[in-house]
Amino acid sequence: MNYLLGAFKPACNISITFTDGKNRKQVPTKKDNGQIVMNPLFQSQETIAGKINIEPYQGKKVEHNGVKVELLGQIEMYFDRGNFYDFTSLVREIDVPGEIYERKTYPFEFSSVEMPYETYNGVNVRLRYVLKVTVTRGYAGSIVEYQDFVVRNYVPLPPINNSIKMEVGIEDCLHIEFEYNKSKYHLKDVILGKIYFLLVRIKIKNMDLEIRRRESTGAGANTHVETETLAKFELMDGAPVRGESIPVRVFLTPYDLTPTHKNINNKFSVKYYLNLVLVDEEDRRYFKQQEITLYRLKEETS
């Protein structure tokens, strides 16, 4: 077997290291096979620089028609798997055609790269950033190596952040007024609020606050909408009476959230909703959904 494997083995080992790789923050990313790997984290306008090592295997030489490194921003639809849409593509030629006999190191640098979108792993869509090193060869096929990296973009505090306040109800049956302190939350934020019962004629069993994610992909007739409930947080146990006000305090930290994405490259959108659900004793559900905007606030510690 060994020699058989050896036959398909690439002639060289390519590794990519980032300049500040040791200090840079790593974030976990889930691969297709479910494995979790740590990838370095960047943000837009950062310079992405590093070194590429090409090390031919013992006693082999690599003939090539040139070596290049690309920085790609790709969107992949799962219903159209393998077909990537590149919204960003930068190329650096790092070697002219020739032969590599021994380990060779090439530095590379993409300075101040514009990376407007964040890395995203959704149900039907994936947005990823990758460094692609290609050792172009003729008949033998090119040798390609990928290095994923994660992009997160931080935004400042929104200047306007109104609270969400609403009165809803079913006539002569249930009237509530709810209030969430903001309409825009950052990912480590806390939702504070209260639910005020104006009229209760049904026997409520409990009340939950759900955080739902709506991912829509495609456009026009091909739009796919996928809704996930990411969190189900019980706010109240038992039946309240008129005049009760129930506090809301939900920490967003434990949940796997992303910022809201609006029409990324005309390919997909990710929206978040707070869904207030009241369940009565016959397990009937009464709910009201409100969109919230999630954003990534610059962390002071990083």
Binding site: I204, E234, M236, D237, G238, A239, S245, I246, P247
Partner: peptide
Amino acid sequence: VEMCRGIQHPLRG
């Protein structure tokens, strides 16, 4: 004491 309002079920509350 405020947070405890979440339990409206008499016995549990």
